[in-house]
Protein backbone atom coordinates (compact mmCIF):
# COMPACT_ATOMS: atom_id res chain seq x y z
CA UNK A 1 0.00 0.00 0.00
CA UNK A 2 2.74 2.32 1.00
CA UNK A 3 4.49 1.56 -2.25
CA UNK A 4 1.50 2.36 -4.44
CA UNK A 5 0.88 5.69 -2.74
CA UNK A 6 4.53 6.73 -2.74
CA UNK A 7 4.22 9.74 -0.48
CA UNK A 8 7.16 12.13 -0.37
CA UNK A 9 7.92 11.33 3.22
CA UNK A 10 7.29 7.81 4.26
CA UNK A 11 7.26 6.58 7.83
CA UNK A 12 9.47 3.78 6.58
CA UNK A 13 11.32 2.86 3.44
CA UNK A 14 9.80 -0.09 1.57
CA UNK A 15 11.53 -3.42 2.02
CA UNK A 16 10.90 -7.03 1.12
CA UNK A 17 11.93 -8.12 4.56
CA UNK A 18 8.95 -9.10 6.67
CA UNK A 19 8.23 -8.61 10.33
CA UNK A 20 8.45 -4.85 10.59
CA UNK A 21 5.10 -4.42 12.27
CA UNK A 22 5.62 -7.33 14.61
CA UNK A 23 9.12 -6.48 15.74
CA UNK A 24 8.61 -2.74 16.00
CA UNK A 25 5.32 -3.22 17.79
CA UNK A 26 6.87 -5.61 20.25
CA UNK A 27 9.83 -3.30 20.77
CA UNK A 28 7.65 -0.30 21.42
CA UNK A 29 5.38 -2.25 23.76
CA UNK A 30 8.28 -3.50 25.85
CA UNK A 31 9.93 -0.10 25.85
CA UNK A 32 6.68 1.52 26.88
CA UNK A 33 5.83 -0.88 29.68
CA UNK A 34 9.29 -1.47 31.11
CA UNK A 35 10.97 1.88 30.60
CA UNK A 36 8.73 4.74 29.57
CA UNK A 37 5.68 4.18 31.74
CA UNK A 38 7.61 3.93 35.01
CA UNK A 39 9.78 6.90 34.06
CA UNK A 40 6.64 8.85 33.26
CA UNK A 41 5.33 7.97 36.72
CA UNK A 42 8.50 9.46 38.17
CA UNK A 43 8.26 12.66 36.18
CA UNK A 44 4.55 12.96 36.96
CA UNK A 45 5.21 12.57 40.66
CA UNK A 46 7.97 15.17 40.55
CA UNK A 47 5.91 17.56 38.46
CA UNK A 48 3.39 17.51 41.29
CA UNK A 49 5.86 19.82 42.99
CA UNK A 50 5.79 22.22 40.10
CA UNK A 51 8.87 23.63 38.43
CA UNK A 52 9.49 25.97 41.32
CA UNK A 53 9.18 23.04 43.72
CA UNK A 54 11.78 21.05 41.81
CA UNK A 55 13.97 24.14 41.68
CA UNK A 56 13.64 24.50 45.46
CA UNK A 57 14.73 20.90 45.93
CA UNK A 58 17.64 21.29 43.53
CA UNK A 59 18.88 24.44 45.20
CA UNK A 60 18.46 23.14 48.73
CA UNK A 61 22.05 23.36 49.94
CA UNK A 62 22.28 19.72 50.92
CA UNK A 63 20.83 18.48 47.62
CA UNK A 64 22.91 20.94 45.65
CA UNK A 65 26.02 19.76 47.42
CA UNK A 66 25.17 16.08 46.86
CA UNK A 67 24.64 16.79 43.18
CA UNK A 68 27.92 18.67 43.14
CA UNK A 69 29.73 15.75 44.76
CA UNK A 70 28.17 13.25 42.36
CA UNK A 71 28.85 15.29 39.25
CA UNK A 72 32.17 16.77 40.31
CA UNK A 73 33.79 13.54 41.43
CA UNK A 74 32.28 11.70 38.50
CA UNK A 75 33.82 14.22 36.10
CA UNK A 76 37.24 13.72 37.67
CA UNK A 77 36.84 9.95 37.67
CA UNK A 78 35.70 9.91 34.05
CA UNK A 79 38.69 12.06 33.14
CA UNK A 80 41.05 9.64 34.86
CA UNK A 81 39.30 6.68 33.28
CA UNK A 82 39.58 8.32 29.85
CA UNK A 83 43.29 9.03 30.13
CA UNK A 84 44.22 5.63 31.46
CA UNK A 85 41.55 3.97 29.32
CA UNK A 86 43.17 5.44 26.24
CA UNK A 87 46.58 4.31 27.40
CA UNK A 88 45.33 0.79 28.10
CA UNK A 89 43.51 0.59 24.78
CA UNK A 90 46.67 1.76 23.00
CA UNK A 91 48.88 -0.72 24.78
CA UNK A 92 46.44 -3.56 24.14
CA UNK A 93 46.11 -2.94 20.42
CA UNK A 94 49.58 -1.72 19.49
CA UNK A 95 51.99 -3.78 21.54
CA UNK A 96 52.56 -7.45 22.06
CA UNK A 97 53.64 -8.56 25.48
CA UNK A 98 53.24 -11.68 27.56
CA UNK A 99 49.78 -11.90 29.11
CA UNK A 100 48.26 -9.34 26.78
CA UNK A 101 45.12 -11.38 26.26
CA UNK A 102 44.61 -11.79 29.98
CA UNK A 103 45.03 -8.07 30.52
CA UNK A 104 42.52 -7.53 27.75
CA UNK A 105 40.03 -9.81 29.49
CA UNK A 106 40.57 -8.14 32.86
CA UNK A 107 39.39 -4.80 31.50
CA UNK A 108 35.80 -6.03 31.42
CA UNK A 109 35.84 -7.07 35.06
CA UNK A 110 33.79 -4.10 36.33
CA UNK A 111 31.08 -4.94 33.78
CA UNK A 112 30.72 -8.40 35.22
CA UNK A 113 31.51 -7.89 38.90
CA UNK A 114 28.44 -6.92 40.96
CA UNK A 115 28.75 -3.43 42.37
CA UNK A 116 28.06 -4.49 45.94
CA UNK A 117 30.94 -6.96 45.75
CA UNK A 118 33.17 -4.24 44.35
CA UNK A 119 32.04 -1.95 47.15
CA UNK A 120 32.94 -4.21 50.05
CA UNK A 121 36.19 -5.22 48.38
CA UNK A 122 37.22 -1.60 47.78
CA UNK A 123 36.19 -0.63 51.31
CA UNK A 124 38.30 -3.35 52.87
CA UNK A 125 41.26 -2.46 50.63
CA UNK A 126 41.22 1.28 51.15
CA UNK A 127 40.13 1.47 54.80
CA UNK A 128 42.85 2.87 57.09
CA UNK A 129 43.58 -0.69 58.21
CA UNK A 130 43.30 -2.14 54.70
CA UNK A 131 46.10 -3.22 52.40
CA UNK A 132 46.26 -0.06 50.29
CA UNK A 133 44.69 2.26 52.84
CA UNK A 134 47.48 1.56 55.34
CA UNK A 135 50.10 2.53 52.74
CA UNK A 136 48.25 5.71 51.82
CA UNK A 137 47.83 6.56 55.49
CA UNK A 138 51.61 6.73 55.79
CA UNK A 139 51.49 9.68 53.41
CA UNK A 140 48.59 11.20 55.28
CA UNK A 141 46.09 10.31 52.56
CA UNK A 142 42.69 9.11 53.68
CA UNK A 143 41.00 7.24 50.87
CA UNK A 144 38.03 5.33 52.23
CA UNK A 145 35.20 7.38 53.75
CA UNK A 146 36.23 10.53 51.91
CA UNK A 147 35.47 11.84 48.41
CA UNK A 148 38.64 10.00 47.35
CA UNK A 149 36.79 6.74 48.05
CA UNK A 150 33.95 7.82 45.80
CA UNK A 151 36.49 8.68 43.13
CA UNK A 152 38.14 5.27 43.34
CA UNK A 153 34.81 3.46 43.04
CA UNK A 154 33.81 5.60 40.06
CA UNK A 155 37.10 5.03 38.24
CA UNK A 156 36.58 1.30 38.82
CA UNK A 157 33.17 1.21 37.18
CA UNK A 158 33.96 3.72 34.44
CA UNK A 159 37.22 2.30 33.15
CA UNK A 160 35.89 -0.41 30.80
CA UNK A 161 33.67 2.13 29.02
CA UNK A 162 36.69 4.32 28.34
CA UNK A 163 38.80 1.40 27.05
CA UNK A 164 36.15 -0.34 24.99
CA UNK A 165 34.95 2.71 23.10
CA UNK A 166 38.44 3.69 21.95
CA UNK A 167 39.94 0.26 21.34
CA UNK A 168 38.05 -0.64 18.13
CA UNK A 169 39.08 2.62 16.51
CA UNK A 170 42.74 2.22 17.34
CA UNK A 171 42.53 -1.18 15.64
CA UNK A 172 41.18 0.43 12.52
CA UNK A 173 43.71 3.24 12.21
CA UNK A 174 45.46 2.99 8.89
CA UNK A 175 49.12 2.54 9.71
CA UNK A 176 50.14 3.87 6.32
CA UNK A 177 49.06 7.37 7.30
CA UNK A 178 51.44 7.18 10.21
CA UNK A 179 54.16 5.95 7.91
CA UNK A 180 53.45 8.81 5.52
CA UNK A 181 53.61 11.28 8.33
CA UNK A 182 56.91 9.82 9.48
CA UNK A 183 58.26 9.77 5.96
CA UNK A 184 57.43 13.44 5.61
CA UNK A 185 59.69 14.08 8.54
CA UNK A 186 57.35 14.33 11.51
CA UNK A 187 58.60 13.09 14.83
CA UNK A 188 56.73 10.23 16.45
CA UNK A 189 55.20 12.55 19.03
CA UNK A 190 54.15 14.95 16.32
CA UNK A 191 52.57 12.14 14.34
CA UNK A 192 50.68 10.94 17.39
CA UNK A 193 49.36 14.35 18.35
CA UNK A 194 48.57 15.66 14.88
CA UNK A 195 47.68 12.55 12.91
CA UNK A 196 46.69 9.68 15.15
CA UNK A 197 44.87 11.45 17.95
CA UNK A 198 42.34 13.74 16.21
CA UNK A 199 40.18 10.98 14.65
CA UNK A 200 40.06 9.23 18.02
CA UNK A 201 38.71 12.23 19.89
CA UNK A 202 35.01 11.47 19.33
CA UNK A 203 35.46 7.95 20.69
CA UNK A 204 37.39 9.25 23.67
CA UNK A 205 34.62 11.76 24.33
CA UNK A 206 31.98 9.05 24.03
CA UNK A 207 33.83 6.84 26.47
CA UNK A 208 34.20 9.79 28.78
CA UNK A 209 30.49 10.55 28.64
CA UNK A 210 29.57 6.92 29.30
CA UNK A 211 31.93 6.62 32.25
CA UNK A 212 30.59 9.91 33.53
CA UNK A 213 26.95 8.86 33.23
CA UNK A 214 27.60 5.57 35.01
CA UNK A 215 29.58 7.29 37.74
CA UNK A 216 26.91 9.86 38.47
CA UNK A 217 24.28 7.21 39.02
CA UNK A 218 26.41 4.63 40.78
CA UNK A 219 25.19 3.56 44.20
CA UNK A 220 26.09 0.01 45.19
CA UNK A 221 29.85 0.26 45.22
CA UNK A 222 30.01 3.79 46.58
CA UNK A 223 27.92 3.60 49.75
CA UNK A 224 30.33 1.08 51.21
CA UNK A 225 33.39 3.22 50.67
CA UNK A 226 32.08 6.82 50.91
CA UNK A 227 31.76 8.51 54.28
CA UNK A 228 28.22 9.61 53.39
CA UNK A 229 28.68 12.90 55.23
CA UNK A 230 26.26 15.65 54.18
CA UNK A 231 28.06 18.39 52.25
CA UNK A 232 31.24 16.31 52.00
CA UNK A 233 30.81 12.79 50.72
CA UNK A 234 27.07 12.32 50.29
CA UNK A 235 26.15 11.37 46.71
CA UNK A 236 22.88 12.17 44.98
CA UNK A 237 21.62 8.55 44.70
CA UNK A 238 22.16 8.12 48.45
CA UNK A 239 20.19 11.28 49.06
CA UNK A 240 17.32 9.74 47.09
CA UNK A 241 17.44 6.73 49.40
CA UNK A 242 17.59 9.01 52.44
CA UNK A 243 14.65 11.08 51.19
CA UNK A 244 12.70 7.86 50.72
CA UNK A 245 13.32 6.71 54.27
CA UNK A 246 12.14 10.13 55.42
CA UNK A 247 8.94 9.41 53.46
CA UNK A 248 9.68 12.48 51.34
CA UNK A 249 8.60 11.01 48.00
CA UNK A 250 8.33 14.40 46.35
CA UNK A 251 11.92 15.26 47.21
CA UNK A 252 13.18 11.84 46.13
CA UNK A 253 11.36 12.12 42.80
CA UNK A 254 12.63 15.64 42.26
CA UNK A 255 16.27 14.58 42.70
CA UNK A 256 15.65 11.51 40.55
CA UNK A 257 14.11 13.66 37.82
CA UNK A 258 17.04 16.05 37.87
CA UNK A 259 19.42 13.10 37.52
CA UNK A 260 17.27 11.59 34.80
CA UNK A 261 17.33 14.87 32.91
CA UNK A 262 21.09 14.97 33.12
CA UNK A 263 21.41 11.35 31.94
CA UNK A 264 19.27 12.19 28.97
CA UNK A 265 21.38 15.23 28.17
CA UNK A 266 24.52 13.09 28.44
CA UNK A 267 23.08 10.54 26.02
CA UNK A 268 22.12 13.37 23.71
CA UNK A 269 25.65 14.73 23.93
CA UNK A 270 27.00 11.32 22.93
CA UNK A 271 24.64 11.37 19.96
CA UNK A 272 25.84 14.79 18.92
CA UNK A 273 29.50 13.85 19.29
CA UNK A 274 28.95 10.88 17.08
CA UNK A 275 26.93 12.78 14.51
CA UNK A 276 29.68 15.38 14.40
CA UNK A 277 32.27 12.66 14.09
CA UNK A 278 30.40 11.02 11.23
CA UNK A 279 30.46 14.33 9.38
CA UNK A 280 34.03 15.15 10.26
CA UNK A 281 35.70 11.80 9.85
CA UNK A 282 33.14 9.75 7.99
CA UNK A 283 32.92 7.13 10.70
CA UNK A 284 32.37 6.90 14.36
Amino acid sequence: MAQSLRPRRRFRQPSVIPGFGLTLGYTLTCLGVIVLLPLAALVTRASGLGLSGIWDVATDPRVASALRVSFGVSLLAALTASVFGFLIAWVLTRYTFPGRKIVDAVVDLPFALPTAVAGIALASLYAPNGLVGAQLAKFGIEAAYTPVGIYIAMVFIGLPFAVRTVQPLIVEIDREIEEASATLGATRLHTLVRVVLPPLIPAVLTGFALAFARGVGEYGSIIFIAGNLPYVSEIAPLLIVIKLSEFDYGGACAIATIMLGISFVTLLAINLIQAWSRRRFGYV
Partner: peptide
Protein backbone atom coordinates in the same frame (compact mmCIF):
# COMPACT_ATOMS: atom_id res chain seq x y z
CA UNK B 1 18.34 6.59 22.50
CA UNK B 2 15.33 5.51 24.55
CA UNK B 3 16.50 1.89 24.53
CA UNK B 4 19.85 3.15 25.82
CA UNK B 5 18.31 5.20 28.57
CA UNK B 6 18.40 2.52 31.31
CA UNK B 7 22.21 2.42 30.90
CA UNK B 8 22.57 5.88 32.29
CA UNK B 9 19.74 5.86 34.80
CA UNK B 10 20.96 5.49 38.38
CA UNK B 11 20.10 2.03 39.75
CA UNK B 12 18.39 3.68 42.70
CA UNK B 13 16.12 5.55 40.32
CA UNK B 14 15.46 2.31 38.44
CA UNK B 15 14.09 0.82 41.64
CA UNK B 16 12.26 3.95 42.68
CA UNK B 17 10.21 4.18 39.49
CA UNK B 18 8.71 0.74 40.08
CA UNK B 19 7.82 1.70 43.64
CA UNK B 20 6.05 4.73 42.19
Amino acid sequence: TLIDLPFSVSPVVSGLIYVL
